[in-house]
Amino acid sequence: MELVCPAGSLPALRAAVDAGADTVYTGLKDATNARHFAGLNFTPDSLARGIEYARSRGRRVLMAINTYPQPHGWGQWTTAVDRAADLGVDGVIIADAGVLGYAADRHPGLPRHLSVQASATSTEALQFYQEQFGIRRAVLPRVLSLTQVTRLAENSPVELEVFGFGSLCIMAEGRCLLSSYATGESPNTAGACSPAGHVRWEDLPDGGLETRLNGVLIDRFRPGEKAGYPTLCKGRFQVNGNKLGHILEEPTSLNSMELLPDLQAAGITAIKLEGRQRSPAYVAQITAVWRAAIDACRARGREFRPQEDWQRTLARLSEGSQTTLGAYHRAWQ
């Protein structure tokens, strides 16, 4: 299985390559991709250097153009596709049907991957994107159980890539509008969820802390309690006037390493690690662990077990220092 790693900067790209990534995925410094954060991502020049670095070591670079352009920004998205073609990336990761059509028409030789943001969860949906836009690969949403992934892989007309590790979207990607409901900006429209510009951290008189998103109280922490970023779906709310807590999801990261033999047997082509917003050091660590795991799984097949030190490293790097199998595991659902 191919290891696909995140890079939000040239140092992170180099770190991923050095630590054993087969492929590194990137994005430009604008709203054309779903990690549109200040100080992050690539200029065409820095990406050209990144591609050169990866190529000279036999690795690949992908560019994500996976948000949904509206008419006023259309030219920026088509320009991003043209740039990707000019730079000679090994593929573009796209969600929007209009952008896919543009890429297929103008740059038929540029491989197209369907972004997780397109939320394709069925054979029919995969067929649609393959027939309409000639996609080579699809990234599956983090809403499917292992059984469902396996069934899908049996009939898939395209290569499949699944998430291995990182921040966990618990909603079907590309169909979650919680962020724009609260702030006016969503992953689809602005390339960011719960965007930093709307976040307020407020100290409380008792030494505690409140986090707000555009004024909405997302969480309140006791003095000394570890406070996380106010991602909407990981806040503490009250249901039906009585149950208070993480009613949607706890702050936790996805870790599917123990499923590697199953994913390999199912014929999954690639494992994706989330985290373009993270540091080069983080990218280096998770890449090294997953490189070792995938190599071990290739060698040992069904006998593969994650090493304890790998799992400790990943837990330490996780949100809230805890990990979950997420939707892969039916009981989570």
Partner: peptide
């Protein structure tokens, strides 16, 4: 407004029931 769809059932989660 329909805002999001998940693998997880929040109603079942509220009732502490498996989906």
């Amino acid at each position: 407004l329909p805002l999001a769809w998940s693998a997880r059932c929040y109603t079942a989660r509220y009732h502490d029931l498996p989906k």
